[in-house]
Nucleic acid binder design. Structure first.
Lengths: 220, 220
DNA sequence: TAGATTGTTAATCGATTAACAATC
DNA sequence: TAGATTGTTAATCGATTAACAATC
């Protein structure tokens, strides 16, 4: 429980640890050394030991780490050991894709409703049972069914407005898919999935690689 | 053109610069100081000047930066000033959401086809005209219609296989939505959108915030 | 010219890596 | 016990911030 300020750099790596340990556990691997985990993940053994030591001595000299123990511990650190009720604002392609995302349910996220203004969408029910309701009713809905997590999957122009409604409705964490940086009060946390940002970085890398290889890219 | 190794930290910020400058230009703002841009983006003025100086002196003392000039320059650095032909492997919710993503077209990405193995999907055509073809035909398709960018939007178990086919077909950049780290030869670049990773970080922040505020989270 | 603001160097801070004693 | 591998401290490296002279 030693919550002594884990640095951002470490936090960003935690999901990767979780993902790899989960995979190892599924393969039936029981123990792993920092050396080997580092090899698989593309990190140095030293860094892995430093990272893990942020939350205490979980390994054993001469042995390594117990895969399942470590995975569970990290799950606890990340808060993956609970369930969360979730509303999604914006029932377009992205909103519905997230709602239907299989590992979403599995990771404790229960999507209870989606909200949109498109009359074509409002009234539908997704395969997993979540209804699409009119965005007008969002605040009222949250009053009756409190949710800790809200997802913004609207166009950028209305994303801030959507976030405001979620905050007013008592949502504490916002997962934002709109390409804007939301402003929220300090008791609310936000994490962004800026898809275009990720795409830009990919294209940048491609350009760099072309330069490195001396590739002259075709016209068009 | 001074391509003197821009550091990863800077590259990760570039899309943000582009996004903000684009917004400013749309609002008709002509010039901006590092000070004010920093305020808006939540960065220090010093950092912004350092970052921009990676690719040369683009500002003017006593004046600041010309918004549109700087935006265009960064667009060039990121490679946003060209068009790219794109195939998507996996025509499930995520694949289709990406194909339909409006800023995708706008940013120069032309989705020419999607590939899947689900007979329900194969044969359909998306609203933007892209057909869904059987994954068996992917390599052959790429032989006839070369694409520089491929998107992996398959389940994790087959993501590596999808990547292999893309690489064999000559794709040079892979945008990966599957929750695995793909292995590709060194002439190919990859960028990951690990949605679950982003979600985990959100949940972690929520837990930390709860601790900070002394919130005892409800059961269920 | 005076004021503003960059470009750039130096100082600080933090993160990563290396090394090794502790210990299973 | 000997071998392996952690936990942890110290050294290095890189990124951020501060400061200020250059200059528009």
């Amino acid at each position: 429980m030693a919550s002594n300020k884990i640095s951002d750099a470490v936090i960003r790596r935690l999901p990767g640890y979780y993902r790899y340990l989960y995979g190892l556990e599924e393969q039936g691997v029981e123990r792993i050394s920092s050396q080997e985990l580092g090899q698989r993940m593309g990190l140095t053994a030293s860094q892995i030991r430093q990272d893990i030591n942020c939350f205490g001595a979980l390994g054993q000299q001469g042995y390594g780490y117990n895969v399942s123990e470590l995975r569970q511990y990290i799950a606890g650190v990340l808060g993956l050991d609970r369930r969360y009720r979730v509303v999604i604002v914006g029932a377009g392609n992205i909103g519905r894709a997230v709602a239907a995302y299989p590992s979403f349910q599995k990771r404790g996220m229960d999507v209870v409703a989606l909200f949109d203004v498109d009359p074509e969408l409002v009234g539908q029910t997704l395969p997993n049972g979540a209804p699409i309701l009119h965005a007008q009713g969002l605040k009222e809905y949250l009053g009756a069914h409190s949710c800790r997590v809200g997802i913004v999957a609207t166009p950028g122009q209305v994303a801030q407005e959507a976030a405001n409604m979620l905050v007013e409705g008592g949502v504490r964490a916002i997962w934002n898919f709109a390409p804007v940086d939301l402003k929220v009060p300090s008791h609310v946390v936000v994490n962004n999935v800026h898809l275009t940002d990720s795409l830009y970085v990919l294209l940048y890398k491609l350009k760099e690689k072309d330069l490195e290889l001396g590739v002259v890219e075709e016209g068009e």
